[in-house]
Amino acid sequence: MGNIPKLIIKRLALGVFVLWVVSLFIFLGVSLLPGDVATEILGQSALPETVAAFRHELGLDLPLHIRYVHWLGGLLTGDLGHSLANGRAVSQLIGERLGNTLFLAGVAACFSVPVSLLLGLLTALYRGSVFDRFTNAVTLTWISFPEFFVAYILIMFFSVQAGWFPSLSTMREGDSFAHSLYLVTLPALTLTLVVTAHMMRMTRAAIISVLGSPFIEMAKLKGIGQRRIIVWHALPNALAPIINVVVIDLAYLIVGVVVVEVVFVYPGLGQLMIDSVQRRDITVVQACSLIFAATYVLLNMFADVLAIATNPRLMYPK
């Protein structure tokens, strides 16, 4: 032992470093903008003195590195600045919507992870069968669909024709949990369909690649049944890549949420980000992209740490 904690700490440090560089990128990108926040707010026709006074008020006249330290300090204490469009605190704008987005992604994850693991296992078990080939063809096609296409197909069938679910998932404060769940069914289903295809194919590939190992050959020669080999011998050894794929797909889910939220007019972070991009409300876009990027980096880091932790070979240094 001792090797694993060291590797994990190394990986965590790398993740924090990446996050720091990303924050630097985002900050510098916005700072290099031709014309700064002050002129954006006051308009082109503002007097130079007014702009200068306003810049002073916002702290824009300070040198770049000091501004960065202030910005980073604000971030760490939860102060994300103010929206250029309506002057509200960004943290306040984001707070509730972040919860909604996590709720949607969470529901989608609860659907998609068990389904894709089961499908991956079944297609590996019955590989080459009609069921396997059918599932493969369907998922390969499905992967190629843009998210909004899947979303509108679902709306067409389940909302317009069957009338089971609403086509707009407008959540309100005080909605009961069951009602929220009902509202978010179609968007969650869309996300599920989009990630399941990938997750299932990767699970299948991971199990099949383990099936080529000598110890599986050995198990076969001992006369163990196909099903037992897959569940007891192949699956535990394919666990690390599968966990990795699941976590990476969850990270993808967080990003894929953007398009789906817009289709269903769901009040989440993605919708806020798109609205802000259209208004060129840079402080909000900055904060949103930082949150999305951080979630993505953290989940990927988590995937790496899990892969290290579930790999017993790493317990012994080479």
């Binding site: 990108g29 990003v255 060129r280 876009v285 900055q286 992209s289 990027a293 993505y296």
Partner: peptide
């Protein structure tokens, strides 16, 4: 490139499109 790839493309594209129009 490792660092650029650590951020999802759609998010990066949205941020840059806001900056550059």
């Amino acid at each position: 490139i490792d660092i650029l790839m650590a951020v999802p493309q759609l998010i990066f594209a949205l941020l840059l499109l806001t900056i550059f129009g």
